[in-house]
């Protein structure tokens, strides 16, 4: 059976380097799946397109159909790839607003691959000091490799940069393979059906 992976991207521009990184991570995951004989289906949730609806949901406590479709796509997926631009050393407000709307526990045990983009390598640790704690709170299974891409990383082919960080392509490939490893070990996500324990009126009346 096909695995379903939701890709959350919080890039603000069009085109966006964050979306580019998200797409590369998704491709790497599909390839790694294919190499293991498994089919991976990607569903992209581009937060930029529902930004206004996200703030409305936050204010009113009521999710519009588009917000609800986005949170459901993410919380029911077998795995999640989450990518944000880094502003002031952390995820952007759009990314955090979306995950503020995800129920506590809805991503518990879900394999998650984290990616981040920024103009400079200065914020390379943001995945580890800002994003991982958020997903730790959500009890997600975050893969060991987080992929940070500074502007200079894009277009880099082959050679290792001066600071000895592996080229982006290698890190993307490794991260995708790690996500698939965990995905296959975990299997399909079992989403708890809140109506599964429903007791019918017939049963309540002793006629069930």
């Amino acid at each position: 059976m096909t695995f379903r992976v939701a890709v959350v991207t919080a890039g603000l521009r069009e085109p966006s380097s964050t979306r580019m990184l998200a797409d590369r991570l998704a491709e790497a995951t599909v390839s790694a799946g294919a190499a293991r004989g498994e089919q991976v289906e990607i569903e992209v949730v581009d937060l930029r397109t529902i930004a206004g609806a996200l703030t409305s949901a936050l204010m009113s406590g009521v999710q519009s159909p588009e917000v609800s479709a986005a949170t459901t796509a993410v919380t029911t997926a077998d795995a999640v790839i989450a990518v944000t631009p880094i502003f002031s050393g952390s995820y952007n407000g759009l990314f955090k607003t979306f995950f503020d709307l995800v129920d506590d526990g809805a991503l518990a045990g879900t394999p998650v691959l984290l990616g981040a983009t920024a103009g400079t390598p200065r914020h390379s640790l943001a995945i580890d000091h800002a994003l991982r704690p958020l997903f730790a709170y959500l009890r997600a299974l975050v893969v060991p490799t987080g992929v940070f891409a500074a502007t200079d990383d894009f277009g880099q082919v082959g050679s290792r940069p001066a600071d000895d960080v592996a080229p982006l392509g290698q890190r993307v490939e490794r991260a995708g393979a790690e996500l698939v490893d965990i995905l296959l070990a975990r299997g399909h996500k079992q989403v708890k059906d809140e109506f599964a324990d429903f007791t019918s009126f017939d049963e309540l009346l002793g006629q069930g």
Binding site: S90, T97, D100, P133, L134
Partner: peptide, 17 residues
Amino acid sequence: VYKASYTGLLKAFVDLF
């Protein structure tokens, strides 16, 4: 505290700086 951090709303405003 939302999800063990500041709110997305606060960050969305701060992102204007």
